[in-house]
Design a protein around this nucleic acid. Structure first.
Lengths: 240, 240
DNA sequence: GCAATATCAAATCTCGAGATTTTATGGTTT
DNA sequence: AAACCATAAAATCTCGAGATTTGATATTGC
């Protein structure tokens, strides 16, 4: 029986294209497994091993792994196979700052040029996210919330017609999501994200370029602080 | 006999890693051929055909093509093979603006935090570029100048320690280079690039963040204007 | 006992051929 | 003549096995 959650997920994912080739299929599954955290940072990805788990040949596995290098989710060491990209606070700091720069600029342009269509879609995405945040159980993985959050951020910059900005932001968003999920395994983020989203939404509708840019930057950076705090807590608990 | 140009090129390219695997080798050769313009935009890349030209198997060819998708130099259409990414003024405009945003930010940070080491290397790179520009024959492909130009831009942002910014800028720079070379086939860019480089260099040494940021943006955008002009000229000549 | 070398298993890289899908061809119908 | 459908040709996708390289273990020499 299909649950209500399943239906919501299907609707949210409808934009994702269904893979018509084995390579794409394995690529998407591997990507999900890495972002989800099932494949841990630094893990060696032996094609010889994985081909059994994903029911494909070694060559197909290799091609899928090659595609993941583009997303910087796996690293290819020549003649020495693939590994899941390692994580570090320094890396996440870099991701956060680069994303803040690009997304702030995109949102400003979006606010400047977005028309009725943009404003309407944004309002819809915001409402969907608000509902998801009401129902959300704190400190817990929530795929549906993740989808709504992503869609809200996408809707914010949808008024800015730049394929390249969107491409880079997609990559960075996936990286952020990975860090967020890894951090969730260890500690709870005490933080009212919803209030931040409300403020961003209101500034966007008010067409306040400067304010929406600064709010987005702050919003993105707070996640970094949370992950940093988690990391520190983990380190301390390891020492004790 | 190795010419003076050959030696200079070898020195300039020494940073590029020599491929230890066939896939990487073919990948680099294909990439160069696309940027150089030998493989024209929109061309179908049939693995069955190309494997003969590059002396590898179809599977190896496929993997190399997959890697090029990451650079957005080729596009993969599921079950329908690969093609060389098409070009358009709209695309180059997007590339230019995105690069302007990222590079201006990177240069500002670089100027703010760069130390003696950065300043010294920048001075060296500027001098090398100046020499190359003195010798350069106008309206002609010049691989050595391309290398020096790239190195100068890299040196400018070297004081800003952001792997992600650099990664994205590398991709965008390759795209720009491709457009520049395609445009060169058709018409001459009447433009004194050297003066722009001098101004940027002086502002950087003077640690004038705002000015160096604006100069870089302008510098990047001028290339767009040149390509636009070339395109218009070509269109007109086609009509008449 | 330690370093250096030789040997061997495991994993990666590469290939050529078979299975599947797309594209081109040509004949039939409206 | 244009549209439609079957057939054939070409290209892509996928596989399993062979060739190379890497990493680990055991042996030798000092």
């Amino acid at each position: 029986m299909a649950s209500s959650l399943d239906r919501r997920l299907d609707a949210a994912r409808s934009s994702e294209t269904t893979p018509r080739t084995l390579i794409q299929d394995v690529y998407q599954r591997l990507r999900a497994d890495i972002i989800q955290g099932d494949l841990k940072p630094g893990t060696r990805l032996r094609a010889e091993h994985l081909k059994g788990l994903y029911s494909v040949s070694g060559a197909t596995m290799r091609e899928a792994l090659g595609l993941l290098v583009a997303d910087s989710l796996v690293i290819s060491r020549e003649q020495r196979g693939f590994i899941v990209s390692p994580v570090s606070i320094a890396d996440f700091t870099d991701i956060t700052e680069t994303r803040a720069t690009l997304e702030a600029h995109a949102v400003r342009m979006s606010v400047r040029h977005g028309g009725d269509e943009w404003e309407s879609n944004l309002t819809g995405a915001f409402h969907r996210l608000s509902l998801a945040e009401e129902r959300r159980i704190p400190n817990q993985k929530d795929d549906y919330w993740e989808e709504c959050n992503k869609k809200f951020h996408e809707a914010l910059i949808a008024g800015f017609d730049s394929r390249w900005s969107r491409h880079f932001l997609t990559i960075l968003y996936r990286q952020s999501e990975r860090y967020r999920r890894i951090a969730l395994d260890h500690a709870p983020p005490e933080r009212n994200v919803h209030e931040e989203h409300v403020a961003i939404f209101e500034a966007a509708i008010a067409r306040d370029e400067e304010r929406v840019g600064e709010l987005i930057k702050h919003h993105i950076r707070v996640t970094l602080d949370v992950v940093k705090a988690v990391e520190t807590a983990v380190d301390n608990s390891n020492d004790g």
